[in-house]
């Protein structure tokens, strides 16, 4: 080990000459410039990124406005069919106030099933005896 220390210390020679060669200061300066250039471009990209994302994920243009009342109007035939069905089901004087389509949130089938289930075991009132 001592030998290697002596050998190495004899081989260590301070010289500024390598700095002036192609692989000296020019390479170091170029290296720093490339690092800065790459990261400046990254900065520029990150700066515009939110705007790019906003463009990409912008909502589709709104559809032309239509008269909501006109959309709600059902064909007369449909209205007649619904009225007939309600009359056949209710079997007493009634008035249809509103017709609307069921959405998935309404759980229409479940609601209908639950109604039928409750009606199937209706307990008669005592005063009707």
């Amino acid at each position: 080990m001592i030998l290697s220390l002596e050998q190495a210390s004899s081989s260590i020679a301070f010289s500024l000459a390598p700095l002036l060669e192609e692989h000296g200061i020019p390479l170091a300066v170029m290296g720093m410039l490339v690092v800065f250039l790459a990261l400046v471009l990254v900065v520029a990209f990150i700066t515009i990124l939110p705007r790019v994302v906003a463009q990409i994920s912008a909502p589709s243009p709104p559809r032309p406005m239509t008269d909501p009342a006109a959309e709600d109007v059902l064909p007369e035939e449909t209205l007649v069919v619904i009225a007939a069905a309600v009359a056949a089901t209710v079997c007493r004087p009634h008035r249809i106030v509103r017709i609307r389509g069921l959405t998935p949130e309404d759980h229409g089938w479940s609601l209908e099933g639950r109604l039928q289930h409750h009606q199937s075991h209706r307990i008669p009132h005592r005063d009707r005896r």
Partner: peptide, 13 residues
Amino acid sequence: GVFLTYLGALTIG
């Protein structure tokens, strides 16, 4: 630090 040390190492052989 990388590039200055690179130059420093060059100067000592």
